[in-house]
Amino acid sequence: MQIELTINEKAVKWEVAFDELLADTLRSHGFLSIKTACDTSCCGLCTVWIDGKSRLSCSILSLQAHGKKITTIEGLPKEAEEFAQILSAEGAEQCGFCSPGFIMSVLAMKNELVNPSEEEIIHYLTGNLCRCTGYMGQLRAIKTFLGVV
């Protein structure tokens, strides 16, 4: 079936199967920043924005994205680069596999929360797993990024 959606500010028409998941559709159209690491909606690696809200692209049918506005990290080059610079200065992109989804969550958080406390930051990002870094370096990077101590 054909769906129409906006991907990173660009209107597209895509042919998708009824049971196709958005993460797969996005990858097949070359949005290779989308990583997946589970089949159970647990890891957060596949995070994108749908109408500005962070969502698991592995857990939504592509058809349900019809008419919606999708943003991937490819669509936020400036913001993503800014945070990625801080993250990698900290060394906290170890294998980097979790980073795109993590960055999408961090940027969503920046849009949604005003002056979040450390606890609020941790709570907001609990759905982003990382096996390499132990999370401390990511937190340092976020604090630098948000200008909080």
Partner: peptide, 12 residues
């Protein structure tokens, strides 16, 4: 509901 997986999960 706040401890169910994560924000991007609960958004869905």
């Amino acid at each position: 509901v706040r401890d169910i997986i994560g924000v991007q999960f609960r958004n869905g």
